[in-house]
């Protein structure tokens, strides 16, 4: 299984999940991202989940934990690329991403983080 690549781009960490992840792989991705936030001036984390065809209670919970952990370190998390049928399944299961923002794609996520930064600095 390919490792999830993490790119750093002007204060934003971008993780693009490549294929279905097991629970331990999701946990490891969460730890890696949180570790990198702590020793860099990171203001945002973007996680691309468009390759996932299932986001179940464990994955959702882990994403929420990541988002609230990142927030404690001053970074905002944006989850991008949730597929239509995955979104519907999550809603029917009662799963929400309360601690993360969502965006359609990477561009929208970066725009979101930019405008948030603009609001904060202005």
């Amino acid at each position: 299984m390919p490792e999830t690549p993490i790119l750093a781009h002007s204060g934003v960490l971008i993780a693009s999940i490549q294929s279905a992840l097991s629970d331990s792989e999701i946990l490891s991705l969460r730890s890696q991202l949180l570790a990198r936030i702590s020793h860099k001036s990171v203001r945002g984390v973007v996680i691309d989940v468009s390759a996932l065809d299932v986001l179940d209670s464990f994955a959702t919970r882990t994403l929420n934990e990541l988002a609230s952990g990142a927030r404690l370190r001053g970074a905002q998390t944006v989850v991008v690329g949730i597929q239509p049928d995955v979104a519907l399944s999550m809603v029917l299961l009662g799963l929400t991403l309360r601690d993360a923002e969502t965006a359609l794609d990477l561009d929208a996520a970066l725009g979101l983080l930019e405008s948030a930064a603009g609001r904060r600095d202005g």
């Binding site: 299932v54 239509p84 519907l88 399944s89």
Partner: peptide, 27 residues
Amino acid sequence: GRAVAAEVGLSRPDQALLATAISELAR
């Protein structure tokens, strides 16, 4: 589970729902 669901003719949202339910139970 999802592959079988697709073969049987479940709609894409129903495939996702079944896969999610299997995921919960298998965990």
